[in-house]
């Protein structure tokens, strides 16, 4: 591999300075503040903050509510990722086959990504509303079938579907690009050898799509840990009975509503470590199975 070198390091420094500055201001500085708060008892309005050592972390890790929140987040991340990736893959395969009207369809499938999470939440809140929304017809036929207001499992499924729907568009773009990058000649050769559509997909398209698949997986999992806030906030506010109290939502509630800055800071440090760990694991163990061409 070839590398470009700058003779004058000052120019190099100057070129990267704006990015470094942005990363510092919006990432390193807040992170270091959170780290500091996590080890102190921070009073919301400022003023004496006492050193706490690991007490904030100890409180969290001995709290079964916190473990519950972690479990819910993992279930949500797994559910939303599987749902959105499989839906996006199916849609992308259809778009790739260039059936009639695929251009309009392609634009339509990209659209949802431009919708803000709270708006998605509001729309799905109506769709899944047990007494006034679309689901009320189902409830009329089978009374008590759907009740996300009191049933935690229903609420979690509802949030998962909304989160997945929003992510489908993003995944779709990558899958479609990945599919279109596969040389036509390979597929045509398969077709001439008599392979069926499904067979060509399994043996040619999906293996060649593996790098894209891997990238999308990492992004989706991280995204469902950190970006689910808007949907939860508008749809369930973490309820009922904490059934949708995802880690990121709990941070918001404890920190900004409850003014427990130190507890929330400790939680965000743990969330950050968790996301980093997940990414490392994925790169170490899953990436090995991925072959880049």
């Amino acid at each position: 591999m070839r590398r470009a070198y700058f003779r004058n390091n000052w120019i190099a420094a100057l070129v990267v300075a704006p990015q470094l500055l942005i990363i510092f201001v919006f990432f390193y500085w807040p992170t270091s503040q959170a780290l500091y708060w996590a080890f102190t008892f921070e009073q919301p309005w400022g003023g004496g903050n006492e050193w706490a050592g690991f007490e904030n972390f100890r409180n969290l890790l001995t709290d079964d509510r916190y473990w519950h929140s972690i479990r819910v987040s993992i279930v949500y991340a797994a559910g939303a990722t599987v749902l959105s990736m499989s839906a996006a893959l199916i849609l992308a395969v259809f778009a790739d086959r260039q059936l009639r009207g695929y251009r309009a369809y392609r634009i339509g499938a990209i659209w949802p990504y431009a919708v803000a999470a709270p708006a998605v939440g509001l729309a799905f809140r109506f769709i899944f509303n047990p007494s006034a929304g679309v689901m009320s017809y189902v409830n009329e036929a089978f009374p008590g079938f759907w009740d996300p207001i009191l049933n935690g499992d229903h609420a979690l499924i509802m949030v998962m579907i909304a989160g997945a729907w929003k992510q489908v568009a993003y995944n779709f773009i990558f899958f479609l690009a990945g599919l279109q990058a596969i040389p036509r000649s390979l597929i045509e050769a398969g077709a001439m050898d008599g392979a069926s559509i499904l067979r060509r997909m399994r043996d040619i398209q999906l293996p060649l799509l593996a790098p894209t698949f891997f990238f999308v997986l990492v992004i989706n999992i991280n995204d469902s840990f950190t970006d689910s806030f808007g949907i939860v906030d508008t749809m369930t506010a973490g309820g009922p009975a904490r059934a949708t109290n995802l880690m990121v939502y709990k941070i918001y509630v404890d920190g900004f509503r409850g003014l427990d800055y130190s507890g929330a800071a400790a939680q965000s440090i743990i969330l950050m470590l968790l996301v980093i760990a997940l990414t490392v694991v994925q790169f170490r163990y899953i990436e090995r199975r991925v072959h880049y061409t």
């Binding site: 049933n151 935690g152 009922p240 009975a241 409850g258």
Partner: peptide, 21 residues
């Protein structure tokens, strides 16, 4: 102190009771 959190504890537990848990 922290009354907002205490309110939220109450609401969540009452929801759990109403939900039959």
């Amino acid at each position: 102190g922290g009354f907002i959190q205490a309110r939220s504890e109450w609401v969540n537990e009452v929801q759990a009771a109403l939900g039959g848990d």
